[in-house]
Write a protein that binds this DNA or RNA. Structure first.
Lengths: 339, 339
DNA sequence: TGCATGAATGAAAGCGCTTACATTTTACCG
DNA sequence: CGGTAAAATGTAAGCGCTTTCATTCATGCA
C-alpha cells in the first residue's frame, strides 16, 4: 500500500481486497466476469481507498481513451453550439467525453486542430462538412480514426446531415410561387464551405428551373453587419421584391437594414432565412426560414460515430429539412396568390 | 523498426536517427536541450516514419495530459457558447485541448461530469459559478486539480467573472431614475444558480435603496415561452410600467409577449435585459441591457487556469459590466426625465 | 466417487513514453 | 595543452493499467 502522498493504484486495491490486479481490472471493466462476492470485496476496497484508475495508464494499456473530438468553425454560431450540445448529450455517459476545438473557418487551423485531437488520443472525430484537403482523409484513414461529417451530406464519407441544396431549393420554390420574379440573394462565404455553396447552388437551380436568375448575389461573412450592408447594396436595384438569405443571422441583418431603410417586411420586401435558430422567432416579423434539425442531427452523428468506433457498420443519415412559414414572406404586390 | 502494421514508436525513431530514445523525447518536448544537428536528424526520422507520440504513454509517463475540462449548464445558451469559445481560443495552442461537458443545470449531473473529466486526466477545470456542493471542492483539492470559476465572483475560489449584483443594481438604478416606481421582475431560477440569485438580489437592493420593492417577481426557466407567460401574468397588475429581466432571452420573450398584448415598448412599458448577447440587437426595439464581457472573461479564465496549472500564483479578475442603452427603455409616462 | 468442462482467478509481460542519473563530449581557461 | 565545468547524450527504471495464458476452483454427469 503506497499510502504516502500519491494516489491509490490497482496494486493497493488488489492488496486490500486480497485479490490480483487482474481481478480488480475485471471488476471495473467487465463486472460480470467476476463473482458477486469478490466484486463486493473489490468495490469495498475501491471505496475505502478512494481509488480512481489512472487515465494515462488505462489509455496506454487498452489503446482507447474514450475521448471523442469535434472540430467546428465556431461555437459562436448557434447552429454549431446546438449541434455540439446535442452530440455531447447523446454520447454514452461515462464512456465517452467530448473534446471540442474550433477552427474559426480557417482550413489550416482546422487541420491542426484535427491533428491535435488525434494526438490527444481521440477515438473518433466529428467534423463539419466534407469540404477539406483530401490529405486529411487519407491521414485519418492511415491512423484508423473513425469520423463522421455533419451539417451536410458527406459524399462517400460517413455522415449525419441534411441536404442544404434541396432545402434551399424548396425555399426559393416557395418564393417563386408567391409571384416574385426579381429576387436577390445574400449568401455565406462559399469558399471552403460546402454548406454555403450547396445553399447557393440549390437556390440557383430553383431559379434556373423557372427560367430565371438572381438580380444580384452577395457573398458575405457571417454577421449582422455584413448582411445589412449587402442588403442595402442589393436593394439599390429597385425592382427587387425578395431577398433570400443563406442563414438566419444573415436574414436578421437584412431585416434590420430593411427597417432602417423604411421598408416594410413583408409588404415591401420578402426576406427568408435558413436554419431556424432561436433568433428566427425573435425578429419582427418572425422569420420565414428552413428548419434544420440540428439537435436531432447531433444525436444521429453521435450514434453513428459510436457505431463506427465499436466496429459496427453504421449508417449515414440524411435528415429532412422543413419550410417554416412565419411572417417575413408575402405574395409579391399585385400578384394574387398565396397569402 | 517495428514496421508491420503498428505505428512507429520512439524506439523506431531513435533507431533510425541513430540516437537514444531520451534524445528523441527531448527533441520533441524541449528542443533547446539538444544540438541543432541531432535535432535535425531526429526530426527527419520523425517525418520519415510519420511518427506521432502515443498519448496514453505520454500521459502516463509525464503525469500530464494537456487536457482542460469545462462543465457548463448548456451550450444552447449563447452566453456559455461564447464564453467557452473564447476560453478555448485562449488556450495555448498545441499545449492544451478543451474537454466540454454540459450539466443541463442539474447539480448531480454536474458532479458526475466533473468526476468524468478528472477521470479523463483533465489537468484543470473551468466551472460556472461557485454555487455547488462543498464536497466537490474538497474532492478537487484532494485530487489537486486546479480550477477556475467563471460568470460570477468566486468568493474564496479562483475566478474570472463579473459582479452580477452590482450590474443589475445599476440597471435598476437607471430605471428608477427614469421615474418608474411600479416595477416587476422576471428572474431566472435562483436555486443552485448564484448568477440568477445575485441579479435578483442586486435588483432588490437597488429598489430597497429607493425605499421601494417590486410589484411582482417571477422565477422562470430559461426560454422565450416561460418569459412570455410570466410577462403576461405580471402585467395583469396595470400599474406596472417597467419589467426587469434576468437575462436577454427572458427579455426577448417578454418583448414578444408585449407585442402580442398590443403594448408598445418602450412607450407603454420599459423592458430590460442582461448579458448583451446577439439577440439584444435583433429584437424590436433593440434591448437596453447590461453588457457582460463574455469573451474577455473566457480569455481571462484561460489565462488564470493556465497559470494555476503551471504552478504560478494566478490572480482572479472581476470584470466590469456596462449599461447598454438601446431602445427598450423610456421615462415613465408623465415624468419629465431622461429620454 | 472420479473426471471432464467451463468459469473464476492469478502471474506476469508488456503498452510507449519520460526522466533521474550516469556518462561522454564540448568549450573554455590558465 | 591539460584540466575542469557545462552541455549533450545515453542508460534504464519505472509510470499504472490491461490482457494473455496458465492455473485453480466449482459444477454436473457417468
Amino acid at each position: 500500500m503506497t499510502e504516502k502522498t500519491s494516489h491509490a493504484t490497482v496494486d493497493d486495491v488488489a492488496a486490500l481486497a486480497g485479490v490480483s490486479t487482474a481481478t480488480v481490472s475485471r471488476c471495473l471493466n467487465a463486472p460480470d466476469r467476476v463473482t458477486a462476492a469478490t466484486r463486493e470485496k473489490v468495490m469495498t476496497a475501491v471505496r475505502a481507498l478512494n481509488y480512481t484508475p489512472n487515465f494515462g495508464a488505462k489509455a496506454l494499456a487498452s489503446k482507447r481513451t474514450g475521448i471523442i473530438g469535434a472540430v467546428v468553425p465556431t461555437l459562436e454560431n448557434a447552429v454549431f453550439a446546438h449541434g455540439v450540445d446535442a452530440f455531447e448529450r447523446a454520447l454514452a455517459p461515462g464512456k465517452f467525453a467530448l473534446l471540442v476545438a474550433s477552427s474559426g473557418y480557417e482550413a489550416g487551423r482546422e487541420k491542426r486542430q484535427i491533428e491535435a485531437l488525434v494526438a490527444r488520443g481521440a477515438d473518433g472525430l466529428l467534423l463539419v462538412g466534407f469540404d477539406r484537403d483530401p490529405a486529411i482523409y487519407d491521414w485519418l484513414a492511415l491512423r484508423k480514426v473513425p469520423y463522421v461529417l455533419a451539417w451536410s451530406s458527406g459524399e462517400s464519407h460517413p455522415y449525419a446531415g441534411f441536404d442544404n441544396l434541396s432545402g434551399m431549393a424548396a425555399m426559393v420554390g416557395m418564393v417563386l410561387e408567391l409571384g416574385h420574379r426579381n429576387i436577390a440573394m445574400i449568401s455565406g462565404i462559399t469558399s471552403g464551405n460546402d454548406r454555403a455553396r450547396d445553399r447557393l447552388e440549390g437556390a440557383r437551380s430553383a431559379m434556373a428551373q423557372a427560367g430565371l436568375s438572381f438580380c444580384g448575389v452577395r457573398e458575405v461573412a457571417y454577421g449582422l453587419e455584413s448582411a445589412a450592408g449587402a442588403f442595402s447594396a442589393l436593394m439599390a436595384d429597385r425592382r427587387v421584391t425578395a431577398v433570400i438569405c443563406g442563414n438566419d443571422v444573415l436574414a436578421a441583418g437584412a431585416l434590420r437594414a430593411a427597417h432602417g431603410m423604411g421598408l416594410r417586411v413583408p409588404e415591401d420586401v420578402t426576406i427568408t432565412g435558413f436554419d431556424d435558430i432561436d433568433i428566427a422567432e425573435i425578429t419582427w416579423p418572425q422569420l420565414t426560414t428552413v428548419r434544420v434539425p440540428h439537435s436531432r442531427m447531433g444525436e444521429e452523428a453521435a450514434r453513428l460515430l459510436q457505431d463506427l468506433i465499436a466496429g459496427r457498420p453504421g449508417e449515414s443519415v440524411l435528415l429532412a429539412t422543413e419550410l417554416v412559414r412565419r411572417g417575413s414572406h408575402a405574395a409579391v404586390a399585385g400578384a394574387g396568390i398565396l397569402p
